[in-house]
Simulated assay, not measured.
Amino acid sequence: MSITRRSALGLVAGAVFAPAVVRAQAFPSKPISLVVPYPAGGPTDAIARFVAQDLSTSIGQNVLVDNRAGASGAVGTRAVAHGAADGYTIVFGNNQTHGNNMFLLKDPGYDAVKDFAPLAGVGAFEHAFVVRNDLPAKTIPELIALAKADPEKLNYGSTGVGSGSHLAMELFMQRTGIKMTHVPFRGAAPLVQEIIGGRIDIANSTLPSVLEQINAGTLRALAIASPERNPYAKQIPTLREQGVNNADADSWAAFFAPAATPQPILDQLSKAIIASLAKPETSKAILNLGFTLKVRDPAAFKPYHIQEIATWKQIITDAGVKPE
């Protein structure tokens, strides 16, 4: 056989085997990093880990949670926005990282809409008013009276400037005419410990971050900032039941990938995440935290995302919160 003929046959063989090579390198061919832009131990971290555990089995590659806290969630979010758009680094964000940071940080380092493609909306964190056990207020009207008696003496904690817990409290103060001193933290876990330790008076915190402590009696819940009582905390009355209207606040959460990620990879990740959230074992674990599941695919989440950004931008403006 001549060299020329052997070369030609080699080219044909290469063409035949090329699809097999492509299939062998199909996504995902290595572990995926799931960035959580908050410290380990909080509710956002817990939900991400439930999903990551299931995905590791369903997609055949490890999905590793990477906690990158700082700057109200902007540090980890920025890293994903400017990282490789290949599907191997995604982020579990929320209305702070992918909304409010646009208006509350002078330079977040990314655009929450242009730099990201949503993979799945997961649902919302309901907010609960919790206080240190020895605070002399057992109801929301008593808390309001206590705050009005000595303006700004009471302090309230949040998971950072522009976080849902911060803006939800700003909204509450705006509706009730009270003033309290803001103390931001880098995540839910240290905030909860400071309330238990008696150094923080109150927080309008996400229910998943405080439900265990409420049930254990290490802090007290005064109200749920949602239209209806939560089925996993039926003993806690709503703000509306206690005479405070138009102060409800839920904080959504969602999975995102860099915007330039190829569409087939986005579709694959989206389907896998939505399938994971639909599994009874995953959804039950998340619901047990007190989180409200409302799964949206990218087509449904995009308009919701835009509307939420506009809504909270107005709340920020009305509250007079300035960028830092």
Rank of each mutant, 00 (worst) to 15 (best):
L219G: 02
I265V: 15
L239H: 04
V295A: 02
A249Y: 15
P262D: 13
T238N: 10
E228S: 10
T218Q: 11
P258H: 09
T282P: 03
R220C: 02
N245P: 00
N288M: 10
F255D: 00
L222F: 01
A216H: 09
A225Q: 10
A233C: 10
Q268C: 05
L266Y: 01
S270Y: 09
I265S: 06
I265P: 03
A299Q: 15
P258Q: 12
A272Q: 13
S251Q: 11
K271I: 06
T292A: 14
P258D: 09
L277V: 03
T261I: 13
A233P: 03
A223T: 06
S276Q: 10
P298L: 01
A299E: 15
A233L: 15
K234E: 12
D297A: 10
P262L: 14
P237T: 07
P258Y: 10
T292M: 13
A233R: 09
L289Y: 05
L287A: 11
P264W: 13
K279P: 00
R220T: 07
S283D: 11
A299M: 12
R220P: 00
N246L: 15
T292F: 07
T282F: 03
N246G: 04
I236L: 15
L239D: 05
F256I: 02
P280V: 09
W252N: 05
P231R: 08
Q235D: 13
A223E: 06
I274A: 10
I236G: 04
L222Q: 08
E281Y: 12
A300R: 14
A253P: 00
N245T: 12
G243A: 10
I273L: 06
N288K: 15
D248V: 08
W252K: 08
L293N: 03
E228C: 00
L239K: 04
P298M: 03
E241W: 08
A272S: 14
I274Q: 15
K271C: 01
L293F: 04
A221C: 07
G243Y: 09
A278Y: 03
F301K: 07
T238D: 05
W252V: 03
N230Y: 06
F291D: 03
E228R: 15
A253H: 14
L293Q: 04
A300D: 12
L277Q: 07
P298F: 04
T292E: 13
T282E: 11
A278R: 13
N245C: 00
L289W: 07
G243H: 02
I273P: 02
S226T: 14
R229E: 04
Q268P: 02
K279I: 00
A278F: 04
E228T: 13
T218K: 11
